[in-house]
Amino acid sequence: MLKIDHISKTFNPGTVNEKKAVQDLSLTLDSGDFATIVGSNGAGKSTLFAAIAGSFIPDSGSIILEGEDITFTPEYKRSKSIGRLFQDPLRGTAPNMTIEENLALAYLRASTHQRAFFSRVTRKEKDKFRQQLALLDMGLEDRMSQPVGLLSGGQRQALTLLMATMVTPKILLLDEHTAALDPGTAQKVLDLTRKIVAEHHITCLMVTHNMHQALEMGNRTLMMDRGKIVLDLKGPERDGLTVDDLLQKFAQGAGREMNNDRILLSK
C-alpha cells in the first residue's frame, strides 16, 4: 500500500542550523491500516507527512504508493490520491466560495481527469453532496449556498474531512486535525473521522498529541523521535496498553523521557 523506504531529509545542510528532520526512516502501511503517530516536538512527524504529500523531495530513499513510485512526483499531481487535513481548520476550504462549490471542486479534482477542464457537477451529484453533508449532522445540508467563511472552525474541519474523502483517497494524512478545536467539537470530528475511515476502508496516518487518542483510534501506533520511528505497536501488543505503558515504552525505545508538554498535559 504505502511503502516508505529509507528516506532521509536534512534541512539547511552544512550550516549551524542543520536539522536532520528525518533519518533513514522506513515504514510500510498495509491497505486499510489506520496508524496513529505520537512523538516529541521536532520528532519529524510533520516532515514525514510533507514527504509523503510531496511538499519537498527527500534527499534519499523512495516512497511508493499502491505500487507507484511517487518519490519525484510534483505535489499537485500526487495530491489527487492523497487526502490531507491540517491543524488549522481554515487551511482546507476556500472561504469566499459556497459549501457546494467547495465540495464540487473537491469532487471534480479527484474524480475527473486532470485535463477535464470544463467538467461540471450534475444535479444528481449535488443531491449526493447534500446527503453526505447530512451525515455530518451539523445542519450544513441546508446551508449549501452559503460561503464557507461563515462556518465555525469545527464545521470547516468536518467539511474538509468530507472533501478529502468524498472520492476515497489512497491515503489520508491527518496532521493534528482536531488540536485547534474545542473539546466537544474535537470529539465530534474524531468520531466522524473514525466513521468515515472505517466505512471506506481508508488507509490513514494520524498525528496526535493526545496519548489516549493514539491508543484508541486505529489499529496501529507509531512513536517518533529525532527523525526515526522508535516504536511500532499493533495487534495484541497494543491492546490493553495504558498511556503510562506507552510513555514507558517510549523511554525504552528512544533512550530518553518524552519531552512534549502537550503530550504530558493530555495524560
Binding site: K80, R84, F86, R91, N96, L105
Partner: peptide, 14 residues
C-alpha cells in the same frame, strides 16, 4: 477561484 481564495488549500489539492 480557489487559487485566489485560499492558496494553502490549492497547494494541498491537485
Amino acid at each position: 477561484r480557489a487559487t485566489g481564495d485560499n492558496a494553502d488549500m490549492v497547494r494541498a489539492s491537485s
